[in-house]
């Protein structure tokens, strides 16, 4: 059994790592990681914009985004993947590569989740920080940029890391629309071997497990460090992002 798995890795490691590349599209683990990283990198600023819209006092901004966030969060990711797969070409008439379809879907999906985390992080800071910044003459965006977001986002680093872990797992759903990722590569291997599905998919599961587990471990370390910072412990140097704390006393109106 172990021997089989080592033999499979020995034979197919390149396919599992980078897919058909350079003779075909980039795939395998490399593509999984690129897809996850790209979707988080794009989803993050997108989520900040969604959170702003959700916090806005303008209904025209708040309502559509609220609906989008609720619908996205209330529907299984697989449904969204299938919708984008069938709807986007229908609407645009263009032949969109499955990688892009999956990327866009993940951006919307993770963006909706992250936006709620960001919104909660901003609300948790309380009105006092915004009031203080506005009273000093900062614009709303200035207050967000220099006062609110540095605190809210720093507090959210653990949540964002766990969203990244979730995204890596979510990329496997790209399989149903033929995104050439690690899962896709593994099933190609399985199709060639035909007789060892258990071994192949155990390798697949282990790979995901190792990646996600190490990221989760990293999340825990970061989380502990942030908790320490909040308690006012731990060394701090100038120029480093420092501990965020909600004010002890909230402004009494």
């Amino acid at each position: 059994m172990i021997h089989d798995m080592i033999a499979i890795i020995d034979e197919y490691w390149l396919l599992l790592l980078i897919g058909q590349y350079p003779n075909g599209p980039l795939g395998g683990l490399a593509n999984t990681l690129i897809l996850s990283a790209l979707s988080i990198v794009i989803a993050f600023p997108f989520a900040i914009l969604l959170a702003f819209a959700r916090l806005s006092s303008y209904r025209a901004l708040r309502w559509p985004v609220t609906v989008l966030v609720y619908v996205t969060r209330g529907v299984p990711l697989l449904m969204l993947v299938l919708w984008s797969y069938f709807l986007v070409p229908l609407l645009t008439g263009a032949d969109v590569p499955s990688f892009l379809t999956m990327l866009a879907t993940l951006v919307v999906y993770q963006g909706a989740f992250l936006s709620e985390i960001i919104r909660a992080g901003i609300v948790a800071l309380g009105q006092g920080q915004m009031d203080a910044a506005r009273a000093l003459g900062h614009s709303w965006f200035g207050a967000m940029r220099y006062v609110i977001l540095p605190q809210a986002l720093y507090n959210m680093i653990p949540s964002m890391l766990s969203t990244f872990v979730a995204t890596i797992k979510d990329t496997t759903l790209g399989y149903v629309i033929n995104v050439p990722d690690l899962t896709f590569a593994a099933s190609q291997v399985n199709n060639q071997l035909l007789t060892q599905p258990f071994q192949v998919f155990l390798i697949l599961a282990l790979t995901y497990y190792v990646i996600c587990w190490s990221l989760t471990a990293l999340t825990n370390v970061v989380e502990r460090r942030i908790t320490r910072r909040r308690a006012g412990l731990g060394p701090r140097r100038r120029g480093e992002i420092a501990l965020p704390l909600t004010p002890k006393v909230t402004e009494q109106l």
Partner: peptide, 22 residues
């Protein structure tokens, strides 16, 4: 409005210092 506010100092009951800054 921002320019006007910047000319009126305001001190809050709950301080509202920016905790991420020295």
């Amino acid at each position: 409005l921002n320019r006007l506010r910047s000319r009126i100092g305001f001190v809050f009951q709950s301080f509202n210092l920016f905790p991420h800054l020295s």
